[in-house]
Simulated assay, not measured.
Amino acid sequence: MRRLLVLLASLLLLGLVAFWYVTRPDPLPPRAMAGLTGDPQHGKLVFWAGGCASCHAAKGATGADLLKLGGGRALVTAFGTFHVPNISPDPKDGIGDWTLQDFGNALLRGLRPDGAHLYPAFPYTSYNKMTRQDVADLWAYLRTLPAIAKPDKPHDLRFPFNIRRLVGGYDFLYASKAWVVTGELTPQEMRGRYLAEAVTHCGQCHTPRNMLGAMETSRWLAGAPNPDGQGRIPNITPAHLKWSTTDIEAFLTTGLTPDYDSAGGQMADVVQNLAHLPKSDIAAIAAYLKKVPPVK
């Protein structure tokens, strides 16, 4: 009996050590962002490509109000309600007292400045493929925007999803930095992959998810339930999206389909954001979509 108790205690201890190791925060090396000088003009393009305003500005915001990133939107999910945070340069309510290293840890590792895990409702599982220079450029641009004094609301999540430490296990399983579409790609297609899989994070809406909310990359861009609860986000793999690259480029810049329908819902915001990008980037995304494996 004593040997059995010792064995059980040892197994429990090993389990706790394994849990602690798997769920631990994994920050960037201390000087990972050192020596980088952000270019706010390029950061502005990263800002629009990343769709920052679509979540962090007030719902229905237009014009200059899109640059007021006080957060506050409620994202209702099966795990509970997430409240979008203030990412304006306000030093008290926003991220004005963060460093570039803090910002890099948020985008590339999904961590807050205090080392706690961010929830993957923030798409760091896509942003983690961004270059550090793009992160620095985005940071430089965000610091030029208006400071908004608006405190964050706490998330309202069901147990056990309200335990942040568990997000480390999610990251261990699903926060891959590997590209989904591989093989021989042209420089244009690689640029499109970088934009679509990392910065514009197309998969976050267009890819179905498993029970833990992780993207099922085996069905990459094959369509998914609308997170707003109405209808579905469409399949945009070549199995369903039969448009030419010219048609795709036109849709991404004007919101008009080849049969003169128009983008609605969240996609209208995406089109509004992508309109700020150079034509070469839009063409790169279109070329990439043609290389995505077809999924019926």
Rank of each mutant, 00 (worst) to 15 (best):
S176E: 09
S176Y: 00
A178N: 14
V180R: 02
V181P: 02
V181W: 05
V181Q: 01
G183Y: 02
G183E: 02
L185E: 00
E189I: 10
E189Y: 10
M190Q: 15
M190P: 01
R191W: 11
G192A: 08
R193P: 03
Y194P: 00
E197L: 00
A198E: 07
A198S: 15
A198I: 03
A198P: 05
A198W: 05
V199H: 04
V199W: 04
T200P: 03
T200K: 04
C202Y: 04
C205P: 05
C205Q: 05
C205K: 04
C205S: 07
H206K: 09
H206W: 03
T207S: 06
N210D: 15
N210H: 02
M211E: 14
L212D: 04
G213M: 02
A214S: 10
M215C: 06
E216A: 03
E216W: 01
T217P: 01
S218F: 04
S218Y: 03
R219C: 05
R219M: 09
W220R: 07
L221V: 07
A222N: 01
A224Y: 00
P225Y: 14
N226G: 08
N226L: 08
N226Q: 09
N226H: 14
D228W: 09
G229S: 04
Q230H: 13
R232I: 08
I233T: 06
P234R: 11
N235G: 06
N235Y: 02
N235R: 10
I236H: 06
I236E: 01
T237Q: 07
A239I: 06
A239S: 13
A239Y: 05
A239V: 06
H240M: 14
K242G: 00
W243V: 12
S244G: 00
T245S: 14
T246A: 15
D247C: 05
I248L: 14
I248C: 06
I248H: 02
A250K: 13
A250G: 08
A250Q: 13
F251K: 03
F251C: 08
L252I: 01
L252M: 10
L252T: 01
G255R: 02
T257D: 04
D259S: 14
D259I: 12
Y260G: 05
Y260P: 00
Y260N: 14
Y260C: 07
Y260T: 09
D261R: 15
M267E: 13
V270A: 11
Q272F: 05
Q272D: 10
N273W: 04
N273H: 12
L274W: 15
A275M: 08
A275Q: 15
H276K: 08
H276I: 05
P278T: 07
P278V: 04
P278R: 07
P278I: 05
K279G: 14
K279L: 11
K279H: 15
I282P: 13
A284D: 12
A284S: 15
A284I: 13
I285Q: 11
A286N: 01
A287W: 09
Y288T: 09
L289R: 03
L289S: 09
K290R: 15
K290Y: 03
K290S: 11
K291E: 03
V292M: 11
V292R: 11
